[in-house]
């Protein structure tokens, strides 16, 4: 019984995490300018990491892989937001102004010029 419950919970978490990745990906492609896109992309760093790794830890039960997954999750939770911050900070320093949320910037039409 408890196994079934854990399984269901873990799959719900995994599905939610997948949805977060998908939303982050769509946002990264569709949102108009750099700061809004980075906001969407940071969703995959934090929310999706948390949900997917919790789901996977429930799948693997109490074992060595669980500890490894936990360590990887901590690592990603530390580095992801830091990378997002560094990216936004670099953009700010190079003169990109976060003044409006609707104006399109140069790179918005596609990743490759």
């Amino acid at each position: 019984m408890i196994d079934v419950v854990l399984d269901v919970i873990s799959w719900v978490l995994l599905a939610l995490g997948g949805a977060c990745v998908l939303i982050g990906g769509i946002g990264g492609l569709r949102l108009p300018n750099f700061y809004t896109r980075i906001h969407a992309a940071s969703l995959t760093d934090t929310m999706a990491t948390l949900l997917i790794f919790t789901g996977m830890m429930l799948q693997s039960g109490f074992s060595l892989p669980t500890m490894k997954l936990f360590a990887i999750m901590l690592f990603l939770l530390l580095t992801g937001p830091t990378a997002t911050y560094a990216l936004a900070n670099a953009a700010l320093l190079s003169g990109m102004k976060p003044d409006s949320g609707v104006e399109r910037d140069r790179g918005a039409s596609g990743g490759v010029q």
Partner: peptide
């Protein structure tokens, strides 16, 4: 840059 530095030092 405080945040990258603190996190990086930790890593």
């Amino acid at each position: 840059h405080l945040i990258p530095q603190v996190v990086g030092r930790l890593l």
